[in-house]
Amino acid sequence: MFKDSVPKYWRLRDVVYRLKYIYCRDCGKSSFPPRSKCPYCGSSNIDHRYSKGNGVVEEYTVMYQSEARYQDYQPIVFGVIRLDEGFRIVAPIVDVDPNSVEEGMRVEATLRRVRVDGSTGLIQYGIKFRPSRR
């Protein structure tokens, strides 16, 4: 299989490093990832915004079987996180014992290593979430 692409993740930098999302000026809903039209009402009358990275865990799972690029991080806690700006994202939760994660837990964004593409490929960083320190 191919190695991770450098241009692809350079293109996605606003999304994977800054949580860029869209806000619909017609229906008032937010969504992630950004797209050209609101997925709820179809309007093109949208703003591109950046999240402050604070949210709440709505649901979570502890995953024990990942593909090769993520195996150093197993088990991985994935949370369905609702950001304060109103959109959801499925992302890893770190700095916490998997048994201590719970629904309703406040979390905040943190920049972490996400995956390593073998010994000669990219080392990718991105936004994960940790228990809120505020």
């Binding site: 996605l12 593909e67 690029r69 499925v90 995956r115």
Partner: peptide, 8 residues
């Protein structure tokens, strides 16, 4: 990007 599998 995050390695979310269909199983997860």
């Amino acid at each position: 990007f995050y390695g979310v599998t269909p199983a997860a």
